[in-house]
Design a protein around this nucleic acid. Structure first.
Length: 334
DNA sequence: GCCATTTGACCGTC
DNA sequence: GACGGTCAAATGGC
């Protein structure tokens, strides 16, 4: 259809502009490390907004264009855990616990919860992965619950669960693994999400104690205790630059949109430029119970977005009125 | 004192 | 038995 052809052409055009702007941003940021005239700030601001806007535009267009196919060929290998809905813990298993010593009590409790946890793991519904330079601040609050050295990897893997697991029973978890190519600047992280958020708390992610969560996440995934890199240190410094949560929830743009992490007014000085930013963040496929891969319709790979249920409603809204969404995004103050 | 992180241990799967 | 994922006591920061 001509309509489809036009849309594809439009997508190509937008993508081209996106790449152009992306290429122009690094030198601008390099200059920004010196005292800058207001025009440079303005240019940065415009570039940042333009990138965001194009990003959103690409997402919307890709969603409407290719609802059933991965968008980019460079998909990260997904980790297709096969999950099913969790079952409630057995009541009599709890009653069977007869604690004797603290150690045995702990062991017995562990035994119980572990089996429940494994059961839940097997039965959960979705898993998807992404590669990003900034694995923190994806719009949700996470609490670290473990760290593990994984075979064949140089860095440890950090495990996080939704902060509201206890309060809201949210089963969402994720683990962050720094990729081994140490020479990369910025370092890249493989983030795997398991389960959808059911807590609907994304909007308050950037408030209060979440900063410590983010700091912990960063410390864990960057292994800052062992070898704080300049990039990691800079990002850590930026952790204190808390922003107000964006009024419009969109899929994580952090690896694509440095302004989401470092608003142009707040870009840390004396650090390597973060650009060009990675285009590698991919939607890697959520897996349903029937093994069918959920199409990337809810997330554009070309835009570097990862889609998840926490955002699906907003993206659906954007689908309904993409132009209106773009306007809101364009004229939004970051 | 509260809360999040750290860390060693445990569990299920392969 | 190795491995990945999770738990919870211990610890530290606020």
């Amino acid at each position: 259809m001509a309509f489809v052809a036009d849309r594809e052409a439009a997508v190509r055009e937008v993508a081209q502009v996106y790449e152009l702007i992306k290429l122009q941003q690094p030198p601008l940021l390099l200059h920004s490390q010196q005292p800058q005239p207001s025009t440079t700030q303005l240019a940065q601001s415009l570039l940042s907004k333009a990138l965001r806007t194009l990003n959103v535009a690409l997402s919307v267009m890709k969603q409407q264009q290719q609802p059933a196919a991965p968008v980019t060929p460079t998909s990260v290998k997904a980790e297709p855990h096969q999950f099913s809905p969790p079952s409630p813990a057995s009541a009599d298993s709890q009653a069977a616990i007869v604690p004797s010593t603290a150690a045995s009590k702990r062991r017995q409790k562990k035994k119980k919860v572990s089996s429940v946890a494994m059961e839940g793991k097997k039965k959960t519904s979705s898993s998807w992965a992404t590669v990003t330079a900034v694995p923190y601040d994806d719009g949700y609050e996470w609490r670290k619950y473990g760290e593990k050295k994984i075979n064949g990897t140089f860095f440890t893997r950090s495990y996080f669960r939704c902060t509201y697991k206890d309060d809201a029973g949210c089963q969402a978890t994720k683990h962050v693994q720094q990729m081994d190519n140490i020479s990369d600047d910025p370092p890249m992280f493989h983030v795997t999400y398991n389960n959808d958020h059911t807590c609907n708390t994304s909007a308050k992610a950037n408030t209060g104690r979440s900063s410590s969560n983010l700091a912990a996440l960063l410390a864990g995934c960057c292994n800052m205790k062992q070898e704080p890199t300049g990039h990691a240190a800079a990002v850590a410094a930026a952790m204190n630059m808390k922003q107000e949560p964006p009024p419009l929830l969109l899929p994580p743009l952090v690896d694509l949109q440095p302004s989401a992490c470092f608003p142009h007014e707040q870009i840390p000085q004396c650090q390597e430029p973060l650009f060009p930013v990675s285009m590698e963040q991919q939607f890697c496929g959520a897996f349903r119970d029937d093994d069918s891969e959920i199409p990337s319709a809810t997330g554009s790979c070309i835009s570097g977005e990862t889609s998840w249920d926490g955002y699906s409603g907003d993206m659906a809204a954007a689908e309904d009125d993409p132009l209106h969404d773009l306007e809101r995004f364009l004229f939004m103050d970051y």
